[in-house]
Write a protein that binds this DNA or RNA. Structure first.
Lengths: 182, 182
DNA sequence: ACCTGAACACCGTTCAAGT
DNA sequence: ACCTGAACACCGTTCAAGT
């Protein structure tokens, strides 16, 4: 990949992070290209369509999620449940500060997630390790499953998008954690 | 309102319920009008824009939610927590069977909810009555608030939209209920 | 190899003409 | 009063021409 192409790709992603963070009213592809300082054609050369661009934001976020889960996996198996919950808090906090990626998570369809399939698979795999350990060492509700984690986190993410009195993703997360614990 | 106008309005809503239930790929206004057997202009005469049409689905759903909550309010104050939770299960079940309205809930923006502001306010008011009673008679976690209910239900609704192995709105709801209980 | 932006296609919305 | 649908406007996407 040529140096200018790589730089353009980075600029496009940076522009997406800036503009999607502003949220709806809808961000346009022309606007995105202009902010990145490239032509629209270049945008489409790097990302086949708008969903692929959002998909890349999601993919990179899953990488960050997985780093945190790796930290929890590296922790002592005896405190797997606590380590898992700390990782969830850290991940939710990171996403809460990244409105652009939250927008991509919520407003994209299936295709956005298809772009991050490998990373989402790894996410689930790491959750499974931690849930399996926690099942032995305790601290999780009986019957709690690894797949419950992305499902519940999706709800917390949805909350972070809504700006209404009483809606608070940290509160939502803590209520969910209470349900997770044994 | 003239009889033919009223009939057209109903037909448009019926078409919206049918077509939105198919979910993305996007439903178009022309398609909606055709299914309803009216011209696009008629569609716009009844609903100023697409979000207003989705807003009407949301508004009517809140009315159903409130009916269920009224049943819980009519129940004995001593079992307010159980009655509230039964109402939540019934409401979630109703929404789970109505893909069109779920689509409206999730993919619409602020403006969709603005259309149902009165009904959403009533929803919260009824939740407040039940939470206040439950606080006295027990069965809810200390510190649980009425505003937590729409927030948590939004998460359950988001789950119902995702068709992935292990994603199950009923499971999500039960995990959330476990967190609500004292 | 990669970039550009005018042109195209699609779909939400409007409005002049009709009943 | 209400309805119709051709026309318009907007924005995602393509592609012929350029470097």
């Amino acid at each position: 990949m040529r140096a200018d192409a790589r730089r353009n790709r980075e600029r496009i992603l940076a522009a997406a992070r800036e503009l999607f963070a502003g949220g709806p009213p809808e961000v346009q592809m022309d606007e995105l290209a202009q902010r990145a300082g490239v032509g629209v054609g270049t945008l489409y050369r790097h990302f086949p369509d708008k969903e692929a661009l959002m998909g890349e934001l999601v993919r990179e976020r899953f990488e960050l999620f997985n780093e945190r889960l790796q930290v929890a996996v590296a922790d002592a198996p005896s405190r797997a449940a606590d380590a898992l919950i700390e990782a969830l808090r850290a991940n939710a906090g990171g996403l809460a500060q990244d409105a652009a990626t939250r927008f991509a998570f919520m407003s994209g369809g299936e295709r956005v997630f298809a772009h991050a399939e490998a990373e989402a698979g790894e996410f689930l795999r790491l959750c499974e390790i931690l849930v399996r350990r926690a099942r032995r060492s305790g601290g999780l509700a009986p019957g709690f499953r690894a797949e419950d984690i992305p499902m519940l986190m999706c709800g917390v993410c949805a909350t972070a998008e809504v700006h209404k009195p009483g809606w608070d993703w940290e509160r939502h997360l803590e209520l969910v954690i209470r349900g997770m614990r044994g």
